[in-house]
């Protein structure tokens, strides 16, 4: 292995100093194992499951595919920042209320994907919702309650129904 690296990452508005990291570490690994932010989950390490979804400079990406050391200078936002006071965002609350959580391993990634969708489009159609979360694999729910959670969140946010 090559010599360890030191660098800084801006995560959830806070500058974190990463010390002695291996160059090949993904942002997912650094968030989870070095910065104590395990909300992004590791289920495939190849961008196929969406469990590790975070925002990098306002773009929803799989943190497993971001080389952590190359994310210096970006603004990273994780699921942990959605409700800093222990409260829930409206999307998180909708997931709880709609029964969209079973084992919950995919849930933080799905919450991030839905937050991103609704920030871009406050009134998506059901087909658009399905496309928006098609990169987030869930093995427990069959997505039924997840889609319903989006319906609930949209209804509460805008009063509109997902067509």
């Amino acid at each position: 292995m090559t010599a360890p690296e030191d660098y800084d990452l801006l995560v959830n508005g806070t500058e974190h100093h990463v010390v002695g990291a291996w160059i090949g570490e993904s942002l997912l690994y650094v968030l989870r194992e070095r910065l104590g932010l395990p909300g992004a989950k590791n289920a495939c390490e190849q961008g196929e499951c969406g469990s590790c979804s975070v925002m990098v400079d306002d773009r929803l990406v799989c943190s497993c595919l971001v080389l952590a050391a190359s994310a210096v200078g970006t603004a990273i936002t994780t699921v942990e920042s959605l409700a800093p006071d222990g409260a829930l965002s409206d999307v998180q609350q909708a997931f709880v209320d709609a029964g969209a959580v079973q084992c919950g391993f995919c849930t933080p990634g799905l919450v991030m994907a839905v937050e991103d969708l609704l920030a871009r489009d406050a009134a998506p159609t059901e087909l658009e919702v399905r496309e928006a979360i098609s990169g987030n694999l869930c093995r427990c729910t069959g997505y039924g309650r997840v889609i319903d959670a989006v319906r609930v969140a949209v209804r509460r946010r805008t009063g509109a129904e997902v067509a």
Partner: peptide, 23 residues
Amino acid sequence: ESASRPDGIPKVQGRFAYSADLW
């Protein structure tokens, strides 16, 4: 009745500690 999961809140927050999250 449709009881809410007691682990639902930590799971949506990303705070629920899975076996891969231990340190």
